[in-house]
Design a protein around this nucleic acid. Structure first.
Length: 266
DNA sequence: GGGTAGACCCGTGCCC
DNA sequence: ATGCAACGGGTCTACC
């Protein structure tokens, strides 16, 4: 479930479980998830150190490595994944691709079923975001910058919201939710949106992300007016029961309500 | 030439 | 056994 709200929850989870604990061992079980780093290098950077703090930018989690050469451990979950902190190695979750063992006997697992995720090292979250060409984080970006960055694009609203170079953190599910709540058709060219609509989009984006983060912490409890619970075959608009329509955008299935998100392109 | 969109691909598991 | 679709993103191509 790794879009911004999910990843923010993992950041909170990592902060609550894995900080200030000396790392005793490191094990890579699926080398393909390593990006620009070897298991040997990870071991030498992490062994005997501890994580000091955790941050997030878009769909990436960063854990600061205290002592030694410093640096940050970077994690991205791809389409599937989560973190799991546990005590008994017998409770090691399925699809554990990267395992950190602490001196206290506990473990932190990077769980990633489809192996589309990545583990890397970076000098800083800022340097990493810069090197990747990531746009500003969707939860940090201000209304003005949001309007400017979208305004200079020609693409459709959904494709642009999901473009990590424009802003970082929005994926398929939350792009649909934001556009539904803002009443914008997913194919509307963003450079045709007026100032007011861009402002609405920015405000709705913040609301949706904050609500989703809270829902994750409460274990998936979304307001009834949200599109998300209805986002399935045969789903209907939570506002008036209109059958939802589906189209494909950027290779992703897109759900929208044809009455609340009219196609301005006619 | 850059921005954009679509096709395809990368493990894995589930449905039929 | 096969096909398929999945909360991501990279590459390639065609098109403007």
């Amino acid at each position: 479930m790794p879009e911004l709200p999910d990843v923010e929850y993992y950041r909170i989870y990592l902060t609550a479980t894995a900080l200030h604990k000396t790392i005793a061992r490191v094990e890579v079980r699926a080398p393909r998830i390593l990006e620009g780093v070897t298991e040997r290098r990870l071991r030498s950077v992490l062994a005997g150190r501890a994580f000091q703090s955790a941050r997030r930018h878009g769909k990436y989690v960063f854990a600061a490595i205290e002592g030694g050469e410093g640096g940050w451990l970077v994690m991205h979950f791809g389409m599937t994944g989560r973190l799991s902190y546990f005590k008994d190695i017998g409770d090691d979750p399925k699809h554990d691709r990267f395992l950190i063992g602490f001196e206290n006997g506990y473990f932190l697992a990077f769980v990633n079923q489809r192996k589309f995720g990545h583990v890397a090292l970076a000098m800083s979250p800022e340097a990493f975001a810069e090197a990747k060409g990531l746009g500003p984080d969707a939860l940090s970006i201000g209304r003005e910058e949001f309007a400017v960055r979208l305004g200079e694009r020609r693409g459709g609203a959904k494709a642009t919201l999901m473009n990590q170079k424009v802003l970082a953190g929005i994926g398929n599910i939350y792009a649909d939710e934001i556009l539904f709540r803002a009443g914008v058709h997913p194919k509307t060219p963003v450079n045709t949106l007026d100032e007011e609509t861009l402002g609405t989009l920015h405000a709705v984006m913040g609301d949706v992300l904050h609500t989703a983060i809270a829902a994750k912490r409460r274990c998936e409890d979304f307001p009834g007016s949200y599109l998300l619970p209805h986002r399935h075959e045969g789903g209907v608009c939570p506002l008036d029961g209109t059958p939802l329509e589906t189209i494909t955008i950027s290779g992703r299935r897109t759900y929208f309500c044809p009455t609340h998100q009219s196609d301005e392109r006619e």
